[in-house]
């Protein structure tokens, strides 16, 4: 079954929120308590599901799992997502000394797989897992500014680096699928700094390489202004495109192929975190109305929710989405 068939086959709209951090707020657990414990992952997923009646189940997003496994130093706040402190992979020599990790034995990768399996066993709802895409992983390894230099001055290095990251992401995505994920999202926020032509070479082809080996629903998420690369995103072999809140879904929807699900895009900051519940409801309703004519639409946040997002705002949002019907004559 394609993601479109799954989404359009429902009577009502689905919501696909990126809100794992809220699970920390609801349980009081620290980020790494959850990352290191499949049982706590399950607890967080249950709390989120009980609190918000979601359409998908999620483990807490582990965006740094690849760089952590490769030994990069990380900033690890207790109640926020970790991020890389250094980007040491600057040369062919450093890269060639790196070993492709084994998803089943290296770093915390097997523990996360165990968490995914546990969630898949305990929920009948589809399990969605987000991973960083090959280009963004390359940026994390080499550093954004240095990879920009290499793209122009040392393209062979970039090709080699992307070969490594694509293999790493593909290996893990396959293991995640095998562990029970029904939807795999690749996130490529760094892709917005590229021209459409470079996107095609450095992002699109690599995403295809990963997605073509998967049977799960395939979603591509890119934050920021994607208007210049949107056409190329259609060709990434993704079944769903998750877009930032700055993109006008109603305006871009007519140009999106019917079989690709548009996912988005209430503002997680200026609406979800900052406004009162009724204003959130109004904004959710506005987005839903703007997409009324499109069965290939799934509601979501433009990006991750803040940990301090009022739970009432999320409840109101989910409620509003679930009251929205898909018109049968459109499918």
């Amino acid at each position: 079954m394609r993601l479109f068939d799954y989404v359009a086959g429902q009577k009502r709209r689905l919501i696909y929120p990126q809100m794992g951090a809220l699970g920390l707020k609801l349980t009081g657990y620290k980020m790494y308590d959850v990352y290191r414990s499949p049982q706590k992952q399950l607890e967080v997923a249950k709390v989120l599901d009980d609190s918000f009646d979601l359409d998908f189940v999620y483990p807490l997003d582990y965006g740094v799992i690849f760089v952590e496994t490769l030994g990069l130093p990380l900033l690890k706040p207790d109640y926020d997502f970790p991020s890389t402190l250094d980007n040491p992979v600057k040369s062919h020599e450093i890269l060639s000394a790196m070993k492709l990790p084994d998803p089943y034995s290296d770093g915390n990768m097997p523990v996360y797989l165990e968490s995914i399996s546990l969630l898949a066993e305990n929920f009948s709802k589809p399990l969605a897992v987000a991973l960083v895409g090959p280009f963004t992983l390359a940026v994390e390894l080499a550093g954004a500014t240095d990879i920009c230099r290499s793209i122009i001055k040392d393209p062979v290095f970039v090709t080699e680096l992307l070969g490594f990251t694509t293999a790493m992401v593909r290996d893990y995505a396959l293991a995640v699928e095998k562990a029970g994920a029904k939807l795999i999202q690749l996130s490529e926020p760094s892709a917005v700094m590229l021209s459409p032509a470079r996107f095609e070479n450095l992002v699109q082809q690599k995403i295809q390489d990963v997605f073509d080996d998967l049977n799960a629903f395939k979603v591509l998420h890119i934050c920021g202004d994607t208007s210049l690369i949107l056409d190329r995103m259609f060709d990434c072999h993704a079944e769903g495109l998750s877009l930032d809140q700055i993109m006008s879904l109603g305006r871009l929807a007519p140009g999106v192929p019917d079989h690709i699900v548009i996912i988005g895009n209430i503002d997680p900051v200026t609406v979800m975190a900052d406004l009162p519940a009724e204003a959130v409801r109004t904004e959710a309703r506005r987005i839903l109305r703007s997409m009324d004519a499109y069965p290939n639409f799934m509601f979501s946040f433009g990006c991750d929710c803040l940990i301090n997002t009022p739970t009432e705002n999320v409840k109101v949002c989910v409620e509003e989405v679930h009251q929205s019907l898909i018109h049968c004559d459109l499918v």
Binding site: T145, C148, R149, I152, M193, L194, S195, R198
Partner: peptide
Amino acid sequence: NEYFVPEVVVCAD
């Protein structure tokens, strides 16, 4: 949209 971030970085270099 003729130049993108990589070009700007190298021009600055």
